[in-house]
């Protein structure tokens, strides 16, 4: 990542939520986001148009053990 994204992320959080960075631990946590962003990059294209949260409960029932 070319520039340090942490200051921008802090600013966005403040704007959206009114929550301020509480301490160094919070700032360090944002630094980990570069890794999380890369993980999401690796997953791009896997979600399909029809996916939605409700499919989880349907899957729970569909995958149940027949005699359970």
């Amino acid at each position: 990542m070319a520039t340090d994204p942490v200051p921008q992320i802090e600013e966005a959080i403040g704007l959206w939520t009114g929550v301020q960075c509480p301490n160094e631990a919070g700032r360090r946590g944002l630094e980990d986001f570069c890794a999380l962003i890369k993980e999401f990059e690796a997953l791009r294209g896997t979600m399909v148009f029809e996916d939605e949260p409700a499919t989880f409960e349907a899957a729970l029932r569909a995958e149940a053990e027949p005699e359970a």
């Binding site: 992320i9 966005a12 959080i13 959206w16 939520t17 929550v19 960075c21 509480p22 919070g26 946590g29 944002l30 980990d32 986001f33 999380l36 999401f40 997953l43 896997t46 979600m47 399909v48 996916d51 939605e52 949260p53 409700a54 499919t55 989880f56 409960e57 349907a58 899957a59």
Partner: peptide, 21 residues
């Protein structure tokens, strides 16, 4: 907790939507 406010809503919904598949 602070880091949780930085995650886009689209990513949260993607994470929930991929749960069933």
């Amino acid at each position: 907790l602070y880091g949780g406010y930085a995650i886009p809503g689209t990513h949260y919904l993607e994470a929930l939507s991929r749960r069933g598949p």
